[in-house]
């Protein structure tokens, strides 16, 4: 049986497994005892990848079939400071898995060169999970978190998603909330409005936001980057393409 290596973003972890990505996604979100574990996001890592920070050879040595021949589902290699030690070159496809175990594979795409005007809402996935609003687009926001704004704020690496704001992106006070599922919408509006009057790069809305988010609110994909190599983007297909080509995932993601 083939061995695989996965970088989980929610929560941050490096996991060796004998399950293929789709099976791993189903297992990781649903759980071996078939108790709900919740949605998952992970990235395929080249199994040949090695780094002194991770005891990968030991992990792979333990990643062998069970006595009954069943594949080993997971061997946790590390649950701490994983993202900063994995180069972008080692990253394969990113999987977004729904609560009921449906997986969608996203491929790397170019980061949009220009940032879209208006306000933005970001959910950081790793290493920490705050919910943040910012006047900056994804690329500028990434630069800010990498320490571009000064020594007070700096991450070695980060994974985040941009979530849709609808009309609130341009009119936080009066814009229609429509189908925005966020809790405490008034707080979100006031945080967004404050960005118009204060000269700040970002404002935290929720310091310890839950590790899950509604996939239907993803604006254009998942961003992963580090100081040394810059930013990579995993592009989400358009809603129409998701519905046409990934109907089962799309239905579960819209629950």
């Amino acid at each position: 049986m083939q061995q695989h290596l996965y970088l989980s973003l929610m929560p941050e972890a490096l996991i060796a497994s004998m399950l293929a990505p789709e099976e791993f996604g189903s297992y990781y979100s649903v759980g071996s005892e078939h108790k709900t574990q919740g949605q998952a996001a992970f990235i395929e890592i080249d199994p040949a990848f090695r780094h002194p920070f991770f005891p990968l050879d030991e992990a792979f040595a333990r990643c062998v079939p069970h006595k009954d021949g069943a594949p080993k589902r997971s061997v946790y290699v590390s649950v701490y400071r994983v993202l900063e030690h994995v180069p972008l070159a080692a990253l394969g496809r990113l999987w977004l898995v729904t609560k009921d175990g449906r997986g969608l594979a996203l491929s790397r795409a170019a980061v949009p060169p220009a940032d879209e005007a208006g306000l933005h809402l970001y959910h950081e996935l790793a290493p920490v999970r705050p919910l943040v609003v910012s006047p900056k687009g994804p690329r500028a926001f990434f630069d800010l978190l990498m320490g571009g704004a000064g020594p007070s704020l700096s991450f070695p690496a980060i994974a985040f998603v941009e979530l849709k704001l609808g009309e609130l992106a341009t009119d936080p006070e009066r814009g229609a909330a429509g189908d925005l599922p966020y809790e405490n919408l008034e707080h979100l509006r006031s945080c967004l409005a404050s960005l118009k009057t204060k000269d700040v790069g970002a404002k935290v809305i929720d310091r310890l936001h839950p590790g899950t988010f509604s996939y239907r609110m993803l604006k254009d994909g998942v961003y992963v980057g580090n100081k040394a190599e810059g930013l990579a983007r995993y592009a989400l297909p358009s809603p129409e393409a998701l519905r046409d080509e990934h109907y089962a995932w799309w239905r579960s993601a819209n629950m």
Binding site: G178, D179, L180, P181, L185, R216
Partner: peptide, 12 residues
Amino acid sequence: AGNCGGPGSEAH
């Protein structure tokens, strides 16, 4: 149908 926060919201 996409009103009052839509699927997954507290209203839902």
